[in-house]
Design a protein around this nucleic acid. Sequence first.
RNA 1: GGGUCAUUAACUCAGUUGGUUUAGAGUGUUACCUUGACAGGGUAGAAGUCACUGGUUCGAAUCCAGUAUGACCCACCA
Length: 882
Amino acid sequence: MSIPSKYDASQVEDKWYDYWMKHDYFHSEPDEREPYTIVIPPPNVTGVLHMGHMLNNTIQDVLIRRARLQGKNACWVPGTDHASIATEAKVVAKLKEQGINKNDLTRDEFLKHAWDWTEEYGGVILEQLKKLGCSCDWQRTKFTMDEDMSEAVIKVFVDLYNKGLIYRGYRMVNWDPEAQTTLSDEEVNHVERTDKLYYVKYQIEGENEYVTIATTRPETILGDTAICVNPEDERFTHLKGKNVIVPICNRVVPIIQDSYVDVEFGTGCLKITPAHDVNDKEIGDRHNLEVIDVLNADGSLNSFGMHHEGKDRVVARKDVANELEKLGILTKVEDHTHKVGTSERTKAVIEPRLSDQWFLNMQDLVKPAIKAVLEDEDVKLFPKRFNNTYRHWMENIRDWNISRQLLWGQQIPAYYYGDGKNDFVVAENIEDAIKLANEKLAVTSSGVEKPITASDLRQDTDALDTWFSSWLWPISVFDGIRHPENKEINYYYPTNDLVTGPDILFFWVARMIVAGYEFRNKKPFNNVYLTGLVRDKQRRKMSKSLGNSPDALKLIEEYGADGVRVGLLLSSAAGNDLMFDEDLCQQGKAFANKIWNSFRLIKGWEVADISQPESSRVAIAWFESKFQETLATIEDHYGKYRISDVLMETYKLITNDFSSWLLEMVKPEYQKPIDSKTYNAVIAILENNLKLLHPFMPFLTEEIWQHITERTPEEALIVSKWPESKVIDTKLIKDFDFASEVISGIRTIRKQKNIAFKDAIEMSVLDSEKASRAFDSVITKLGNISELTYTDEKLEGALTFRVKSNEYFVPMQGSIDVEAEIKKLTEELNYTVGFLKSVQKKLSNERFVAGAPEQVVASEKKKEADALAKIETLKASLAGLE
RNA sequence: GGGUCAUUAACUCAGUUGGUUUAGAGUGUUACCUUGACAGGGUAGAAGUCACUGGUUCGAAUCCAGUAUGACCCACCA
């Protein structure tokens, strides 16, 4: 069989993915083995793969494949999130294109459209993950709106309501006028921008005097119900108890005093609009002020806007300002830079708005989750510094607004039966609701009227926040809410690792920990690996809006999934941002090709029943130790989630130790056969290398694995066994390092003198080091030394080089460039003398000798002795030349 | 306004509790060699006052304080 010299990923990747799928290697069922579980951070069902997904799913796949090789029962649960606000926005936009207005549709009609959309585009992203090589258990694919998942959400809502933790309240919430829904505090981003600050004077009732206030939002003047000053502010003491006239609407409102007002800011005089500002609302509550809401749900002014009614708030702002100017009471306009809340999803400017919403009281829920992370380290965050962020958020947590004025999501299971504020019941289904409603009526009303039936009940029209379903994800994918004692949840939960971006630490990670303790009394996962953001070369965040994110599938097409995976992981320390550069994928691709060709070389050898050369024997013994050393380092890195370090170690092992050294050492002469003992050992080594590499480059490694020899499906690499740790022969490794320096020396001389490798040379050694001779056969082979001899005295008229204090002589015919030799020796001497000085400086410092640990002093003395010995040989050589 | 993190070679990053050579890796770069594994491979080399200023110490890239620059997070000053 001839093997192509170029590795072609496109020919290989789909083949092996199908093969693994066909043999169910991604699928997991509970058994007696130790489980290793990851639940995927479910991407938006209608989303497409971007670089962030590629990064964190590659990491998850690395972890899961390694666990599988370690013989654990590896289970990676994939799925998607219904992402209520984002998906609904897309559906609404699509309907609009078709000339359909959402408001003309019934709830069921709209949901039908949304489901159609989900079925059409949903899951595209999961197909893309397959291209990346992700070994998810696809039989377990979940969607946050699956019937069982929704049931769990509803059950949890009812449970929390019955515990008194969920309540309905008329509160100031974040209103997104574009999506026309409320948002939780976490969904609001504060962005800096420069607006106008308008100074407006209000007339004091019955007097020809004015007070001036400053506002960025003149349109809300129409909702003013007071003017407020600081009671300490002497400039305004004379105004106490007086009223002012609100411009335009000419409402008479009181001047009140509250210490909230900052004397320094603006005019020191604050207009109070309780309906449109959180602080104003609080002040209003303290002073029993009227609340006048001037805005409609879409952000336009309502009838309180008078002749500005119907105008959008932004338009109205200018118009009102103009009107104020005409009235001659706009005294000043200046630029003002401040932070404005915007919607995370729609980017619309958020309006604080009073409305009836559902809230979850977080105060007590959060307690076990704080303890778990910060005190017990039951859940560990990587990198650890996120503990601080976590603490800050958790300790300052406020009640969670969980209702959304959306249709796409789990409908809130509250049923209203009357007009009163408390005429509702919360139940998992309508039957329970009827029962509960009747019970409640029997208690509250004296005369029993006719019993309530289904038609008397109206279900709350709001849906739940998306995160109210995804916070259950690690539990609900195993049906642990509905059936808390089922076999799966008991086996797979808590999961092992969670890999996600720090941007959803609050949205999701923290809330999952809360949910875990509340509903299972157990953490949802042991470790959280927070990846960095993927940035471009100019350090900009990769985002759709900037258009700087490369097309994931195109990258895979060009470099192969393995190449892209390697490219992404080559430089991504946990929690640090990743500067993505396509060149790294190119490096990944070249690496794949390199491994492919090393395999080609081995496969091309003819094997014969001949004796094993000493050089091969020792080379193999060395590599086996080197491999073990690397394996130990790798295990350590894995334990610390230093995934890119794992990859770099593996990369060096394969390109340096394996390809550049081992293969060169055991390579038979051209067109001569290799002995079977060496061949078999090299194959075994190659197989172990493939195992280390498989988590990173699953396709390439499986391809080579299957090329090495015929394998049954059970013998596939993906389900083979991770290499065992053995004792490391450190002496052998050290001896080899020494030998490799000798070989380097020979190569340097060959290069300087232009001696072709095919011309054998002699070499003799003055072995003051008493160096190990274990690798002499290797030195002879790789240096092409015809005769290696040990001598007691310097060899005149030869080229020399030194390793430590050993001297090596290569006799030369013809003249030697004495000048160059002297120069070289002098340079080396100077360096060594300089080095000696720095060591001696330390040693002559009494306080160092007295203060430093014995071990350190000893090592410094050894350095001194080594340097002195080397200087001696250098000086002697120089003297010989001159 | 509060907080977290970063700043080491041209680039991307290591450098673990201060002491294994006068700071490392991968990529890139330079010179030469090589067309019998390798969209290349090999060999050798160049390249860094470890952001800055002080301090602690026998000894600091590493610990402390401050400064500068950048990034991110949190926060209801109109």
